[in-house]
Structure formats: structure tokens, C-alpha cells
Design a binder for these strands. Structure first.
Length: 228
DNA sequence: TGCCAGGCCGGGT
DNA sequence: ACCCGGCATGGC
């Protein structure tokens, strides 16, 4: 399959290729090309969860600075973080951008975690996948991608994470319509792959890696892309 | 220099 | 049910 040399996201899907094979081939192509990505960058489930909220529409490098601040202040634990006044918290996570709204979002999450699960992620993650997802989505500031990131990378449960890169890559390669919603794109993967935490982990990380190198918004066509 | 980064929410049509 | 503005820092 080739990516056309145009600036639109309107490419014809080769109907001779079965979608199941496309999704699975894409994974092996990316894995062969880039190798394992070792995601999520973060030492503990709690650090991963905090990172998932802080990285919303934000460069990961900035998130690292914010997390580094939290570590230096020795507050990267549920009760300690919850004990921080919102203004203090906002100051520490300043480098991650949107620090005021993210401080609120972190506190919204911590409020639920501490009040309903005694500040124990382990307890919260005992919920079955779908219930955990609903629980996370009920928190103001946690949307579908953040919820799925927490479920996959912190709770180690098999949900597929869809992000801007995933959409852009699939759309440009004619695997989904440009205006496909989150659930539709998620389903493209989940309906064709056996649920597997390790593989879902690697697949999403590989799509992000591919996106950073070959699928920027302003560079719609790149002959070096391993998928073309 | 401007553009972009691993979104999400709330208010207005 | 969509559409859009707001939120903000730091790196290239």
C-alpha cells in the first residue's frame, strides 16, 4: 500500500488486503523497524498515572521536569500529593504546562483515590477493566485516552490506547476515516487483536514513535515511512 | 520565530 | 450532537 503524494487525508484503501492482516502486519513492521519501546517511562504505577494526566497535549520532556520536581519534593505518593495545597501542587508541575487545570485534575483523581480506595492504586485496580474505565472516566479531567493509558500502563489490563498519532497514522494510510471517533479507532484494533497487555503496550508505543518521526501534522508524506 | 506536544472541558450553536 | 476557545510551558 502506498501513501499518495498529496496533502489530504483521503487515500484509497486497497480492498484486496484484509483489515485483520493490515492491523497485524502493521505491528510486525513497526516492531521490526523500531524494536521494543520499553513503555511507559515511569518507575511505579502511581508515577505512570500522574504522568498520564500531566502529558495531556504536552511534550513528554516537560512532563519529566514536572515529575522530577515532585520526586525532589518527595510527594510522589498518593497521600502526600493529596495533602499538598492546590497552589503548591500547581507550582511543582509548572513545567508540564496548563499547570492550574492539571493541578485540579490531579486533585480530582486523588480525591477519588483517597476517599474511595484509601489511597491505594492496587485496591482501585482490582476493579474489572470496564468498571475501572467507567470509574476513571467519571473523574473531571480524565478522558478516554488518559483513562486507557492508566488502565494499560499502570493497571496492566488490556485496553487499546488511541491518541492523535494513532488517528493521523490510520487516517493517512486509509485505514480509518479522517473523522473517526475514539471508540471507532479503538475498535479497529480491539476487534482484530487478541487482548494482550504486552502487545497493546508495545503497539501504542510504536505508533507514537512512528508518528513522531514520520507523521507530523505538517509532513503528510514521507517516503521513508516503513508503512508506505 | 512560530509551531507543536502521548487532551479535556464547558459554553454556545 | 457537534464546534470552538481556553488552558501554558519548553524545545526545536
Amino acid at each position: 500500500m502506498r501513501l499518495g503524494n498529496n496533502t489530504k487525508d483521503t487515500l484509497s484503501l486497497d480492498i484486496r488486503m484484509k483489515p485483520k492482516l493490515l492491523v497485524q502486519n502493521t505491528y510486525s513492521i513497526l516492531y521490526r523497524h523500531f524494536g521494543p519501546q520499553h513503555w511507559w517511562p515511569g518507575d511505579t504505577p502511581f508515577e505512570i498515572t500522574v504522568g498520564a494526566i500531566l502529558t495531556q497535549n504536552t511534550n513528554w520532556g516537560n512532563v519529566e521536569k514536572a515529575i522530577s520536581n515532585l520526586k525532589r519534593a518527595v510527594v510522589l505518593r498518593p497521600r502526600k500529593l493529596y495533602a499538598l495545597p492546590e497552589k503548591k501542587l500547581a507550582g511543582l508541575i509548572r513545567p508540564s504546562g496548563y499547570f492550574n487545570i492539571k493541578a485540579k485534575r490531579l486533585r480530582a483523581f486523588l480525591t477519588l483515590l483517597c476517599n474511595r480506595y484509601g489511597g491505594s492504586l492496587k485496591r482501585m485496580f482490582r476493579l474489572p477493566l470496564q468498571e475501572l474505565r467507567e470509574e476513571l472516566l467519571s473523574i473531571n479531567g480524565i478522558g478516554e485516552e488518559t483513562a486507557d493509558s492508566i488502565i494499560l500502563y499502570a493497571a496492566d489490563k488490556p485496553t487499546f490506547v488511541v491518541d492523535a498519532y494513532t488517528r493521523r497514522i490510520l487516517s493517512r494510510h486509509g485505514l480509518c476515516s479522517p473523522d473517526a471517533g475514539y471508540a471507532a479507532v479503538k475498535d479497529i484494533f480491539e476487534s482484530r487483536l487478541k487482548p494482550d497487555v504486552k502487545m497493546f503496550n508495545e503497539y501504542h508505543a510504536l505508533l507514537v514513535r512512528l508518528g513522531k518521526v514520520f507523521c507530523r501534522p505538517r509532513n503528510p508524506f514521507c517516503a521513508e515511512c516503513p508503512l508506505t
